[in-house]
């Protein structure tokens, strides 16, 4: 779920919300978890959601929860990368490059799972029956990071993350590649 810090920010960066919900849906599909409803984007709080059945395997819940972090980050970086290089390294960007940067940034910005995602994860794993201890321990920092990310979103942490992934990381990767190419 994505809580709305500013409905207009959500509206401007709606491709990221769509991909976020799609990532939840994708992991449900991978693990064969029944989905009852998907809202990719709406002008309300939450801006998007996926209603699915409670999982049988708690590890599936972990992946369904952090799915957007993986998918949005990778997709945001992939889309922005070919555009960020001419814009930020060569200063030779064209209109299409800026469009791709917008998509890459919007998608990467919505990578953080929401606090509701964290709550579902916590309830499933920490309070679930027959959950291995290592998984419970692994869940603690993940949930803590999600809450930290949610708190940071009030200070535009998600915006900075999106910029870092879409604008900063491609430049760093190119600098790294230049040493070995």
């Amino acid at each position: 779920m994505i809580f709305v810090p500013g409905i207009y920010i959500m509206l401007i960066t709606f491709p990221g919300v769509v991909v976020h919900e799609f990532a939840h849906q994708l992991f449900c599909r991978i693990f064969g978890v029944a989905i009852f409803e998907v809202k990719y984007f709406q002008m309300a709080n939450p801006a998007g959601y996926v209603k699915h059945e409670p999982v049988r395997n708690p590890i599936h819940q972990l992946f369904i929860c952090i799915g957007p972090f993986i998918i949005n980050t990778l997709l945001g970086l992939t889309i922005a990368f070919p555009a960020a290089v001419p814009v930020f390294i060569l200063g030779e960007g064209n209109f299409l490059d800026f469009v791709m940067l917008y998509f890459g940034f919007s998608i990467a910005m919505h990578a953080f799972p929401s606090t509701t995602d964290a709550k579902v994860l916590w309830d499933t794993i920490w309070h679930g029956d027959n959950i291995p201890l290592w998984l419970k321990i692994l869940t603690v920092p993940i949930v803590a990071l999600i809450y930290l990310g949610a708190a940071g979103s009030m200070f535009m942490l998600n915006l900075l993350y999106g910029m870092g992934i879409a604008f900063g990381l491609p430049v760093l990767i190119m600098k790294f590649l230049a040493n070995y190419y």
Binding site: P86, D97, F103
Partner: peptide, 25 residues
Amino acid sequence: GLGTLFAVSLYSFQYHFKAAISYEK
């Protein structure tokens, strides 16, 4: 639509990539 734009962007990227590597080098 996004995939198509990405394909176009990727097509021009091969030229940018070599230039960017040269620039960083």
